[in-house]
Design a protein around this nucleic acid. Sequence first.
DNA 1: CGACCCCTTGATTAGCCTCAACAACCGTGG
DNA 2: CCACGGTTGTTGAGGCTAATCAAGGGGTCG
Lengths: 244, 244
Amino acid sequence: MLKTVQSAFQSRISRHILLTDTERDALSRLEGQAVALGKRDHVFSDSKPNDRIAIMRSGWAVSRVRSDGNQTTISQIFMAGDIIGLSDIGLNRPPHETTMQTDGSVHLLSRKALCDFGAQHPRLFALILSLASLDATALNDRLHAITRYSAEDRLMHFLLTIKAKSEQISEHASDRFPLPLSQKEIGDALGLTDIYVNRLLRGLQKSGQLSLTRPNVKINERSVWATRLNFQDRYAALDFSWAS
Amino acid sequence: MLKTVQSAFQSRISRHILLTDTERDALSRLEGQAVALGKRDHVFSDSKPNDRIAIMRSGWAVSRVRSDGNQTTISQIFMAGDIIGLSDIGLNRPPHETTMQTDGSVHLLSRKALCDFGAQHPRLFALILSLASLDATALNDRLHAITRYSAEDRLMHFLLTIKAKSEQISEHASDRFPLPLSQKEIGDALGLTDIYVNRLLRGLQKSGQLSLTRPNVKINERSVWATRLNFQDRYAALDFSWAS
DNA sequence: CGACCCCTTGATTAGCCTCAACAACCGTGG
DNA sequence: CCACGGTTGTTGAGGCTAATCAAGGGGTCG
């Protein structure tokens, strides 16, 4: 008997609840086929109306807000198993454009299909909403860091967040992890210029706190950073007991 | 026959769909009794675990993130009809503390109760999620403004957002609206100091763009600001057609 | 009546941006 | 195979925005 390999989304969910066979089937039907996309391909454009949701199967995607000029903000970063588009389910035109940051693949589905699914599987839907809320919370934390931390602290906080998020997908033994973002893009996520990000990164490297082996990053004193910045790993703190 | 006055939440929902009597009853049961709270009272504390959701019945509430020291960020502002707590439904300890900004009242319910309700009334649940997504989008817009706009533009953007949001509750004939926030609090929402907020407000007043009659504010050239800042009224752009 | 919060204004400072120049790398096409 | 343009990373010099420091007035609550 052939057992299909489970998707990143399903394995993310399986971390928190034990799926029945029925639920597993329903999830597979919900996801449908995956679409392969290349780096820089659009997942959602901000110029076209959209009523779809995407589930990342592999790779990274990034949401950007652009105002006229070259003023760009990176509002969210998505990795395998993440849901894209839940946070703007009430708008017919996405408030940001979402593009692939690496090669990868996504499942596309309609909002309606997700909600119908939710009505059929309340327990799973509650978990999906909970998972999505973690990203919203991370956004809140980043807002706080951006408004009230120094540039260096912001950068450290950002790196800790990326590290924490990527651990949700696969545990790395070390504190080393891939960061497929240019310095300009890091700046766009933090409200800094690429030039200043460069100076900060080199400074952290010189003081031995960070090791850069593009595209990988290693945080050498993670716990020191975490206590200094009062960093909370929201992804590890998911509590789903209320729904059972 | 006595007809009960509908809550702010119900009238918000009624703007977008026509409620059946059954739905109206179900909403009333969901809300239950309202709790009266005074200015500065806690709705949710960040030090106590919480698995509840609040629905604002009247007044304003504000969510703050605090890190040690006096570094505070105001992450969200809630008005009558808003739902508090959906965006951190997956955490057992709220990432911010929520307090009343004015006297007012709230309905309190458990996450479980909301989700059970959602399973019973998928259409309403989809609308509720859509409404909540508008606040998430507004947060995104503010993040962009904070990272990429000048202090003055940030402030204008913020005022336009508050104005747009308060219009969801009640249409004001003029561009005048109440803003029960101190200058320090405005600064905490924008990543500025109270002192600089003061200078900016006085500057805008002097140039005739703003009229301040505490606690009311009047934006004198709203459309000029909106085009200059590329402001999008997310609250007016709710699209719910996909769910029907 | 004092304590505290909120607003207001001036003078000074510094953190981060801007401008500028160049090196390294990449994919592309001749 | 190399030439090439475009993107990315690196470093220096100087400037501006918004923070900090400082001081005082008005209002309110206990």
